[in-house]
Design a protein around this nucleic acid. Sequence first.
RNA 1: GCGCCCGUAGCUCAGCUGGAUAGAGCGGCAGCCUCCGAAGCUGUAGGUCAGAAGUUCGAAUCUUCUCGGGCGCACCA
Length: 666
Amino acid sequence: MYRTLQMQLQERIEGSLQERYGVALTNLAVELPPKIAFGEMALPVAFELAKRLKKAPRAIAMELQAELAQMPGVAGVDVAGAGYLNVRLDRAAMVKRMAADEHAVVGGGGFRLVEHTSINPNKAAHVGHLRNAILGDSFARMLKKDEYKPGWETGVQNYIDNTGVQVADIVVAVTVLRDMSLADVQRWIAELRAAGTRLDYVCWDLYAAVSQWYEAEPEKAAERKKIRLDTLHAIEAGGNDTAAIAELIATGVLRRHLETMERLGIEYDFLPRESEILHLHFWEAARALMVEKGVLYLETEGKNRGCWVMRRAISQAAGVELAETGPDEDAKIIIRSNGTVTYVGKDIAYHLWKYGLLGKDFGYTTFREYATHTCWISAVEGEDPHPSYAHADAIYNVIDSRQDDPQTQVKEALRALGYAAEADRYTHLNYAFVGLTARTAEDLGYVLSDEDKAKNFIEVSGRKGFGVKADDLIDRMIAAARAEVDARHPELEDRERAEIAEAIGVGALRFFLLRFTRNTVIAFDYQDALAFDGETGPYAQYAAVRAANIFRKAGVSAEAALAAVEGLDLAAMLEGDEGTSVWEVWLTASRLSLVLEQAIAAAEPAMLGRYAFVLAQQFNNFYHRHHILTETDEARKMLLLATAAVARRELVRVLGWLGIAVPSAM
RNA sequence: GCGCCCGUAGCUCAGCUGGAUAGAGCGGCAGCCUCCGAAGCUGUAGGUCAGAAGUUCGAAUCUUCUCGGGCGCACCA
């Protein structure tokens, strides 16, 4: 609602500036003043114009003042300070429109493809993977159609590198260290399943073991690395026992990853796999296209002689002339001199597919049924009918910022191929990695060097088997919540207590990983994550639960309270100190669509986390100041009830976009 | 060596395309449960926005440099 008025104000002022001064300004700043006493919207536009018009800012502000004051929804305009235009809104009118749930429309056309999680299917997910998945899942929720917004058509996929070195490492561990055959592996996986042992946990240890085995005896290191490479090639080629073992393990671990993610409410639409990219010859199609357009060329001299390479965008921008300076030594190798393609090459092919530019598609087969939809996986020969995801208009890749460079190369390859619009709509939704605090690392039994202790965080390492496993973390979060729920609500059924604890534990975890902006390195600490006070998920959930409790006790529904607002004479009840403290809840609630739009534009779910906290804080403040159930003035009581209703309504919405559910009690 | 990111209160972090007296949580101190649930609320102390110069009516925000920290720059994936 705030956004709606803001846009009207911008339009009016922009029109007026054109008419009055012949100045064309767009996207004018309309901001929230630092204090409510200054009104609800502030425009510093007069400062901007001062030098252009050679007039004092205050004089310009005075000229614009009268015009703004006439606008519907505006109660008054003041000129403050050196030339701010401070707008006071018609509070009663705004409250009525909000009670009717009027708000700006968020959404648009085109298909948006969000890719996240993408964990190597060779070991258990850890806390760093959770940051990725939670970030991507929240962003997809922000985009998708729901009860609040039309949103965008959105697809969620999780890329599975089932033929990479990390999977090869596990295969080496199983076939060499454990001396298992294909039949042994089949039996082993069945036994683990029967015993309820998590395959991904077992692989976690195997991966650490094999990583050490490679290095353990220096004189055998070369031989062992060769085993690793041969294994990798066998997996890539397919059609042999080694590949079958890889398939069994990768699929088993993938199923575990999906279970882990589902505990957090995270679901996928499609799982494209590296094996199909290989077997369906995606790369060959991309290669033909790249050679045809001259993006890929054979290097004939220098250190990259015999390789097919692609120039980097930076070299091109710098205008380095090939003929004059000889070979571009900085060029990115796409095809090695032995004829094999690099990771970036395969990724270019994959991204041409995403935009429907490759002329090929995956086969699709069903993999998992969620309550509301099916998750598909790639196949060489799929089923019919099936959906297709190869028609994105915009893509978002949730990937660690350590891959900024390769991501830029893929994007620039698209541009070089002539797909500039696609490159522009390619968002690398990057984020800094998650480390552990020294305290938590020590709790996990890791022995720290003095150097480690001096650092702000300790980096996790899959090869060392060092890190916080996702399921362990989720278990501990829920257990901590459960202890609180048991203490507070002994009267509730066991089942309900479990549900509440799950909502709180998951809410706390998701909020903890979302409250930091993407480029902030998170030093994960168990004590911090398990704290449920202050700026946390449970704090926001608690505010929503309290608001709901009021309706239960008042015997009035939130909907009825909001509907009753229309017939109230509100103006006097929203003025003065008391009235303003009520109004501020509405004002904060009114910014929901604005904050959502900003968070989408910045691809920054943390902005919604911050907003949820501010709204919850505002509500808690209101809750203590105004005792609703004992209010004797009926009209005023109804306004207070509606205030609780609107705070709860928007809190439930914003938490929903963050994947955080509001429990029945806390 | 080249490129990217970061440096804001004791700690952890916000600070939107430059805008009003730089904010929050935690921790500290002082208060608030015969009153809708205290996972809560109120008050209070605490900052040379790493440093320097510049652009601007106005800089935590933009530019340059210095210092300090992190991460990338493979015929790995």
